[in-house]
């Protein structure tokens, strides 16, 4: 259960951090506001998931201890969440693909037999619904905008495509969670995800990449090089001043 909660909380922590890197640097003021808002939601969700993870673990670690005092190999997020911002197209495409998965995942989890998980998921799914509505809308408009915006979005889709497969690959922990009625298998979302994805890509005039190779490892602690750099920044104060309270 602890590990499962880390998977949920680390996704929102890592992606929330990535989105917050845009602060003050977005293409237009409205996007600065929207990105801060999304990041804020994701950090809020992190506090719920990691807070519960700390409780379940029972070793006195709270959400901050889990966020700021673990090293890379203990993180359980999907690799797509840690992919760098690159340009705004990558950031939006990453957000859209995550939102599409996240919304479905949270919808399922809101039916969990574990009331605590169902409660958190029911709260977070409302935010995820809004995030998805926004990111889907932008993907369509930019995909079907200018030649340049279309090309940027297509490039981003191709670059992020190998990180989708990990979302739907089941492992032993997933099987245990499914057997216990806590969370359905990730693979059970696969068809719904791709159906919705195809609809949006068609509206956006974007081509679905044909390569089905999937980069794996995030959910078991083998990450990309980028996560270590992110943690070096994010955890700096807690690591440099371990006795301080903030």
């Amino acid at each position: 259960m602890f590990e499962f909660l880390l998977r949920m909380g680390d996704n929102t922590l890592v992606l929330g951090h990535r989105v917050s890197e845009w602060c003050g640097h977005a293409p237009v003021l409205e996007e600065d506001i929207a990105l801060a808002n999304i990041s804020l939601d994701l950090i809020g969700q992190t506090r719920l998931w990691l807070g519960l993870a700390g409780e379940v673990e029972g070793q006195g670690r709270d959400a901050d201890a889990l966020a700021f005092r673990r090293d890379v190999w203990d993180f359980r997020n999907l690799l797509i969440c840690e992919r760098p911002n690159r340009d705004f197209g990558h950031t939006l495409m990453r957000q859209f693909l995550f939102d599409l998965w996240h919304f479905e995942r949270l919808s399922d989890l809101s039916l969990s037999v574990d009331d605590r998980i169902a409660g958190i998921a029911a709260k977070c799914v409302k935010e995820a619904d809004y995030h998805l509505e926004r990111s889907k809308d932008l993907i369509v408009r930019l995909g079907d905008g200018t030649v340049e915006s279309h090309s940027k979005m297509q490039t981003a889709l191709t670059a992020l495509w190998p990180y989708i497969g990990e979302m739907f690959t089941d492992d032993a922990l997933d099987a245990k969670m499914a057997d216990a009625g806590i969370a359905p298998l990730p693979s059970s979302q696969h068809v719904r995800f791709h159906k919705a994805l195809n609809e949006t890509l068609a509206a956006a005039t974007l081509m679905r990449p044909t390569n089905d190779f999937a980069q794996m490892g995030g959910r078991s602690g083998t990450h990309t090089e980028d996560l270590g750099h992110m943690l070096a920044t994010m955890q700096f104060l807690q690591r440099a001043y371990p006795d301080a309270r903030w």
Binding site: A36, I43, T46, L237, Q238
Partner: peptide, 26 residues
């Protein structure tokens, strides 16, 4: 302030700072 959002020392501080900077943009 954005200069410290990625280095905020707790999740709560990060959330507060994000909300504040979002207000400024507003």
């Amino acid at each position: 302030e954005g200069n410290w959002i990625t280095r905020a020392p707790t999740l709560e501080r990060k959330a507060i700072l994000l909300a504040k900077v979002q207000d400024e943009a507003g």
